[in-house]
Simulated scan of single mutants.
Amino acid sequence: MDKVWRDYDQAGLDAAYDQRVWAPDMAAWLARYRADTAAARAALKPQALSYGPHDCDLYPAQGAPRGVHLHIHGGAWRALGRDDSGFLAPAFCAAGFRVAVPDFSLLPARRLPDVVAELRACVAWLRPRGPIHLSGHSSGAHLAAVLATEMAFASVTLVSGVYDMEPVLLSARRLYVELTAEEALALSPIRHAARIHAPLRLAWGTDESPEFIRQSEAMAAATGAETFVLPGQNHFGAAYAPAQGALHAALTA
């Protein structure tokens, strides 16, 4: 078959952007996300507050607050929500951070530029609560990176994201991610890497799709970010990295 991106034919590129191919235990990880979020809610009793179009769970800091940790969930821009995404909260609350986990619109009900606009509103809503440390996983890392090219943050942590929309829009994801050429450029944070001024950390697992690894390595090269390679971790296991090990130590130092 004809190549459509680098050395990929259409089937190969579609597989490179389908995490189910690389993580056959995806369903078990998603169930763990939800169970660990339920446990975090039971232990920490976050407030569910409206930031405008949606609600945001705000988990309380333990001890004197050091700021806010805003986490943007993954889900290929079309799945999951704050019910699945509060599992990082206990580790950060214990370190003195309030943790904000917002819902936001999902594709294809809304378009990607609209989702970014919602998250800008969430950041503005959180500003009075202290310095904001931003993180995101998977499509949430993409959204966080876009925000980091537009707004100021105390730090930014991107886990297993995509940062160039060109190959995404050539893959099967184009069936629900619809962007003009101008929008695709604007929403490709690697093309605007010089605009990111916050301390930046990138992490990815060694067992992820080669395209996700390539995207992370390219973003690290473009930004000079501190990198954390997660041995033996697939895409879904990597989501826990900000709450443990070397990455968590760096984030809470």
Rank of each mutant, 00 (worst) to 15 (best):
A23C: 14
A23Y: 07
A23I: 10
P24S: 08
P24I: 13
P24Q: 11
P24G: 10
D25P: 11
D25F: 14
D25M: 15
D25Y: 15
M26H: 10
M26P: 04
M26W: 08
M26K: 10
A27L: 13
A28E: 15
W29L: 10
W29A: 11
W29Q: 11
L30G: 09
L30M: 13
L30Q: 15
L30E: 15
A31L: 15
A31G: 14
A31F: 14
R32L: 10
R32F: 03
Y33V: 06
R34F: 05
R34C: 01
R34G: 03
R34P: 02
A35K: 12
A35Y: 08
D36T: 02
D36M: 05
D36A: 09
D36P: 01
D36F: 00
D36I: 02
T37C: 10
T37M: 09
T37R: 01
T37H: 07
T37K: 01
A38F: 00
A39T: 01
A39F: 00
A39Y: 06
A40Y: 01
A40F: 02
A40T: 03
A40G: 04
A40E: 07
R41N: 13
R41P: 08
R41D: 13
R41H: 12
A42K: 15
A42L: 14
A43N: 11
A43S: 15
A43G: 12
A43Y: 11
A43C: 11
A43Q: 14
L44K: 00
K45G: 01
K45T: 09
K45P: 06
K45C: 05
K45L: 10
P46E: 01
P46F: 00
P46M: 08
Q47G: 14
Q47P: 07
Q47I: 12
A48D: 10
A48K: 11
L49F: 00
L49A: 03
L49P: 06
L49K: 03
L49Y: 03
S50M: 10
S50C: 12
Y51D: 00
Y51S: 03
Y51M: 05
Y51E: 03
Y51W: 00
Y51G: 05
G52N: 03
G52S: 09
G52A: 07
P53N: 11
P53V: 11
H54Q: 08
H54L: 08
H54F: 11
D55K: 01
D55E: 12
D55I: 08
D55L: 10
D55A: 09
D55W: 06
C56R: 01
C56A: 00
C56Q: 04
D57S: 09
D57F: 07
D57Y: 00
D57L: 12
D57E: 12
L58T: 05
L58H: 04
L58C: 05
L58S: 03
L58K: 02
L58V: 06
Y59W: 07
Y59S: 02
Y59V: 09
Y59T: 04
Y59F: 14
P60I: 04
A61Q: 05
A61H: 05
A61P: 03
A61E: 04
A61I: 05
A61D: 04
Q62C: 10
Q62G: 07
Q62N: 13
G63N: 08
G63H: 01
G63L: 03
G63K: 07
G63W: 05
A64H: 03
A64N: 08
A64C: 03
A64F: 02
A64P: 00
P65T: 07
R66C: 02
R66Q: 09
R66L: 07
R66M: 02
G67W: 07
G67M: 03
G67N: 05
G67I: 00
